[in-house]
Structure formats: C-alpha cells, structure tokens
Simulated assay, not measured.
Amino acid sequence: MDLETRTHIIKTIAAALGFEHCGIAKAAPLDQDARRLEAWLNKGMHGNMHYMENYFELRTDPTKLVPGARSVITLLKNYYPSETQKPDRPKISKYAYGNDYHEIIRARLHEFIHQLREKIGDVQGRGFVDSAPVLERTWAGRSGLGWVGKNGMLINKGAGSYHFIASLIIDWELIYDQPLAKDFCGSCTRCIDACPTDAILPDKVIQGNKCISYFTIELKDLLLPGDLKSDFQNWAFGCDICQEVCPWNRFSTPHKDAAFTPIAEILDFTTEQWLDLTEDAFKKIFRLSPLKRSKYQGIMRNLKFISQDGI
C-alpha cells in the first residue's frame, strides 16, 4: 500500500473515532527540547513533580519508546463544554467537568491500532495520552496542528487550546504534515498578565511549581501556602485563567462527545455542599472523574483553603 493511501486511512480513522484534528510528523530525536527540558528541571520549576525527572531519554526520543518508530501521529480531542458552572461555585478546570479523559482516549487509541491492523496490516506501535514520557505539544507543533503559546498550551489557529492531546507512535513511514511557519501569539501577553501567581515567564517558560493547577492537583502537602490564598481566585481543582484570556479561544466551540458530559455536581455544588460531602459520597459521585486524582483529602484541603475561613 502506498504512503498516500496509508496516510488517508489513518486520518479517516482518526475522524471516525471522534478526534477533530490529526497530524503526522517524522519520528526523530528532539534534541532542542531535550536541552530545554533539562534546563527547566535543573531550575526546579517542576516542584514536587519528581516523575518528570524520570525516563528523560524516552521523553526526547520516540525510537526509545517504540523501537523502529518512523512516525508520530498526534490527535486532538476537543473538550470545550457548552455548560458553565453556576456563579460563585468552587471553580473546576473545564477539562475535568466530565469523565476522566485518560480512560476514554486510551480506549480509542487501542481501537485505532486495532483498525490500522485490520485495514492496512501489521503495525507495531503504542498509544499515549498524558500518561507516559511523550512531549505531546512538541509533536503537535511538528505535525502542523498549532503552536505552543506563551502559556505553554498548544494553540490551534482554528480551534484554540481546549483540547486533549494524544499520540500514536508507529513503525510505518507516512506522508508528513508541515509545521506552521511561525506561532501567532505575536506581542500579546494577556496570559502572562492574567496569571495571579506569576507562573508564566517570558520565552514560553512556565514555573510549574507556581501554577495554581500544581498546587490544587499535583502538590500533596497537607497545607497550601497561606500567602497565595487571595491569588487562587476560588479555583478548587486546576486553573483555566490563561486559557480564558487567550484571544485564540474565541474560536473554541462546544464538543459533542457524550463521554465528556459535565457531572451535575461540578456545575451546581456550592462551597457548603462540597464541604459537607462525605468521602464515600465523593468516591461514588466522582468515581469516573479526574478529580479522583487529588483524592477526597486533596479536594477538601483545596476547598477549605479557598473558603472564607481558610485553613
């Protein structure tokens, strides 16, 4: 089968499985990203996210993840919701409104590889969705799906940044998409100016250990820094501020995927209702939610921190 036919089949499968965008890049070591990542880690900007120090070579060379890798397929899945939280509710990042995207997209990646083998033939490869050492945003940029903005998010010119990124690394050669000639952030600094904890630095450097998402999701300490209380702006899980102010997200459109239908409690619960929640009720309501990553104790810590009395 010729490269054009193979590539067409891949993009057809991607659309059929609900991915709005599909780009393909040639598998190769990411030498420049390796140097940038090493410098970022050496400065301690990853905070307590020590897992980011692991598997360094795997992160920067896809052939170490998949021997014989020839192509990196990047897939974007829109998660922008049509619903919004009621005013004055503890804020939850939009990506966590519905069910855990890891499970949903992982299943679709398995189906993707299954269909490839059925329609084209034997393929060796692996799928990844934010759970393995893959620099997804770099590969998305290399495959022409957008550029990394000053807020560190992948921005698609026609769809903004509210999307999950998944990768398939396979041992087939394909027709490769071309990266954009430039990014389109220009002189805009809205995300830098809006970040309440000054986590966004110039030159697209993010101080992960100063990001509200880091504090509310990644940090497992019993207490949060009291001097940052006023900066949290009622965020209980994650933070969308840098996306909310990004001009390119005026092109975001609501997704139509039932799997990401918002959990009613996330949209409706008041702070009091959250704080009255028992651990058993939390586990029942949010058993399929990304919120389980912070666990009951982490969510309660965050809620008490942003509530009027604080902790």
Rank of each mutant, 00 (worst) to 15 (best):
E111A: 13
F251D: 03
D171F: 11
G186H: 07
R89N: 08
S213Q: 06
Y162F: 15
A259T: 03
I299E: 00
G160P: 03
G68N: 11
G125T: 03
Q273W: 06
Y80K: 07
K94V: 04
N42R: 13
M153K: 10
P290I: 09
R293P: 03
K256N: 15
L228G: 04
S161Q: 10
P62H: 05
E20K: 12
R301I: 04
K220W: 01
I92K: 05
L75T: 08
E83S: 13
P290R: 03
G47C: 08
G310E: 08
C22Q: 01
P254A: 12
A281C: 05
W248D: 10
L275T: 05
Q207Y: 07
C188P: 05
I105T: 10
L65P: 00
K295C: 02
L180Q: 13
I165S: 09
L109C: 01
N249F: 12
S213K: 06
W139I: 03
D231L: 04
Q124K: 15
R70Y: 07
A132E: 04
I73E: 03
R250N: 14
I170H: 09
G152W: 12
K295F: 08
L17A: 10
Y162H: 13
P290Y: 04
A69S: 01
E173K: 12
K292I: 13
L222N: 14
E136A: 12
L37E: 10
M49Q: 03
W248S: 11
S187F: 06
Q297Y: 07
A166F: 11
I306W: 00
